[in-house]
Design a protein around this nucleic acid. Structure first.
Length: 424
DNA sequence: GGGTTTCTAATCAGTTCAAG
DNA sequence: CTTGAACTGATTAGAAACCC
C-alpha cells in the first residue's frame, strides 16, 4: 500500500495491485452541453471490468440509463443528431438521483473488492465527464467524499501514442481493433473504453513494464517527455510505397480487416501517398480514419472511369464508415425508382437507384434519362441540355466530350433504367 | 455549433556578444 | 560606446484537439 498525491478529497490509498487484476468501472456520459452550468447529463452508462473477458466488457453487461430532464430543458438539435436521443425518450427515462445512487452502489462494491477507498473509474477523455460527475456528486451525495479515482484513457493514449494523428475514442478503439458505431451512445462507448483500457494495460506492461496501479500513478506524475512533431501512422511505409502508379480503387482497412474507406484515383500511388504528407491538412474524419488504417487493398483498373464506377459499386456494397459524402446520417440522401418518378430516402425494392446527394440530383438524372431513354444518344442541342442539367454557361464541355460522357454513362447504366414508362 | 484546454507560432523586449 | 546579429524568455493570439 502507498499513498498517492493529487487524489482530490484528501489522500487515497493506492493498492500496490496489478492493473490486470484491478477491478474498475468504465463510464461514459452523453450531455446536452459542454459543462454542467449549461447542460445536463442525458445518458449515463457504466460497466465493471470482467476478468473472464480479460478485463473487457460486452454490451449486455453495460448499465445504461437515460435521465429525466428538468422541465423546459430542451435537447439541442445537434445533440439529438449525434446521439439519436429524443426528448420524449429522456422524459420516459430515470430519475438522476436514483441512477446516481445505483452508480454509487456499484462504486462502493468495487472499492470493497479492491480493498481500496475509492473506485477506479476509467473514462476516455475524463476532462469532459468529470465536471458532470462532480456536479451530480455535490447534488446528491455531497455528505460523503467523492467516490472515484478517475483514470483517463485519453491521457494514457496521449502518452503512449503521441505520434498518432488522432486519439479520440473512435480513433483509439479503431486503431486497436474495435469499431465504434456512428451514433454516440453510452453502451457502445463503455464497451469501447473497456477495450481501449485492456489494450493500454497490455502496452504499459510490454513497453514500460508498468504493471501496478502505483507505478502507473508514478508514471503519470512525471512530466510528459516532449514529443517530436513527426506524425506516424499505423500503416507501414512499405505498404503504401509499393502501390502501382495506375488508376484504380483503394480501400483503407482497419487492423481487424474492416473496410474504413473506399476511394478512387487516377494514380493510386500519388493519391494514397498524399494522405501521409506532413504538409497536407486533412479534415477531422480523415485523420480519424488514418489513425486506424493499417492495411491497404488496391484494385488497378484500365481507366479512371472504370475506377469511378468500381468505387461507387464498392461503396454501395461495403458501406465504409468514412465514405461520408454519400452516406446517410451525414446528410440527406435520395434513392429513386428506375422510371425516376418515385423517390425515397431509404433504399427500397422500387427505389433502388442511388444514393443521390439531393432531389436536384434526381432531377438531373431525369434529364439524362430523357436524353438516353431510347437506348441511344439523340442529337439534341448541347446548350439546352446543359441548361437542363443546371450547368452554367461558360462551363459547358465541348460537343465531343458531351457525347463521350453520355456514351460512357449509357454503356454502364442503360440497362438499369426502365426504358418503357418514362415521359418527363 | 458550443465550450474548454492545450499547443503553436508570432511577436516583442531584453540580454549577450563580437566587431568596429 | 555603439551597432547589429543571435539568442532567450515572456506574452499572446489563434489554431488544434477534444468532448457533447
Amino acid at each position: 500500500m502507498q499513498y498517492c498525491k493529487n487524489s482530490g478529497n484528501g489522500r487515497c490509498v493506492v493498492p500496490d495491485m496489478k492493473l490486470e487484476k484491478l477491478v474498475v468501472l468504465f463510464l461514459d456520459c452523453q450531455t446536452t452541453n459542454s459543462n454542467p452550468k449549461k447542460g445536463n447529463v442525458i445518458e449515463i452508462g457504466w460497466a465493471c471490468s470482467n476478468f473472464s473477458r480479460d478485463n473487457g466488457v460486452d454490451a449486455t453487461s453495460v448499465n445504461s440509463y437515460l435521465l429525466k430532464q428538468p422541465v423546459g430543458h430542451e435537447i439541442p438539435e445537434r445533440i439529438h443528431t449525434i446521439t439519436g436521443i429524443r426528448r420524449d425518450e429522456v422524459d420516459a427515462g430515470h430519475e438522476p438521483r436514483e441512477v446516481w445512487s445505483q452508480l454509487l452502489s456499484a462504486a462502493d462494491e468495487i472499492a470493497r473488492l479492491n480493498r481500496f477507498n475509492k473506485c477506479p473509474l476509467v473514462i476516455h477523455y475524463a476532462k469532459f465527464e468529470t465536471p458532470f460527475l462532480i456536479h451530480l456528486h455535490t447534488k446528491y451525495s455531497a455528505a460523503r467524499g467523492f467516490p472515484f479515482k478517475i483514470i483517463c484513457t485519453h491521457v494514457l493514449a496521449k502518452r503512449l501514442f503521441p505520434e498518432l494523428p488522432r486519439r479520440s475514442l473512435r480513433a483509439m478503439a479503431g486503431y486497436l481493433g474495435y469499431s465504434v458505431g456512428q451514433a454516440r451512445r453510452c453502451r457502445d462507448h463503455v464497451v469501447a473504453t473497456a477495450f481501449v483500457w485492456q489494450a493500454l494495460v497490455r502496452v504499459l506492461k510490454e513497453r514500460l513494464c508498468i504493471t501496478t496501479f502505483e507505478k502507473l500513478q508514478q508514471w503519470l506524475d512525471q512530466p510528459m517527455l516532449s514529443t517530436g512533431r513527426e506524425r506516424t501512422y499505423p500503416m507501414a511505409r512499405e505498404t503504401r510505397r509499393d502501390v502501382p502508379d495506375k488508376p484504380g480503387v483503394y480501400r483503407m482497412l482497419r487492423s481487424n480487416g474492416d473496410v474504413l474507406y473506399v476511394g478512387k484515383a487516377s494514380s493510386l500511388k500519388k493519391r494514397v501517398n498524399s494522405y501521409f504528407r506532413r504538409s497536407c491538412r486533412h479534415p477531422e474524419h480523415i485523420l480519424e480514419m488514418l489513425s486506424q488504417a493499417k492495411q491497404l487493398d488496391v484494385t488497378v483498373t484500365e481507366s479512371v472511369l472504370e475506377a469511378a464506377i468500381l468505387e461507387s459499386d464498392e461503396i454501395k456494397r461495403l458501406s465504409p464508415p468514412y465514405n461520408v459524402a454519400l452516406s446517410k446520417g451525414q446528410r440527406d440522401v435520395w434513392y429513386c425508382s428506375p422510371n425516376l418518378l418515385e423517390f425515397s430516402q431509404t433504399l427500397t425494392k422500387r427505389c433502388r437507384i442511388g444514393p443521390l446527394v439531393s432531389q436536384d440530383a434526381v432531377a438531373r438524372l431525369a434529364v439524362i434519362r430523357q436524353v438516353v431513354k431510347k437506348g441511344n444518344i439523340p442529337d439534341v442541342d448541347d446548350a439546352r441540355l446543359m441548361a437542363a442539367l443546371g450547368i452554367p454557361e461558360g462551363y459547358t464541355p465541348d460537343h465531343e466530350s458531351t457525347r463521350a460522357g453520355f456514351a460512357a454513362f449509357l454503356e454502364k447504366y442503360a440497362q438499369q433504367f426502365d426504358t418503357e414508362h418514362t415521359e418527363l
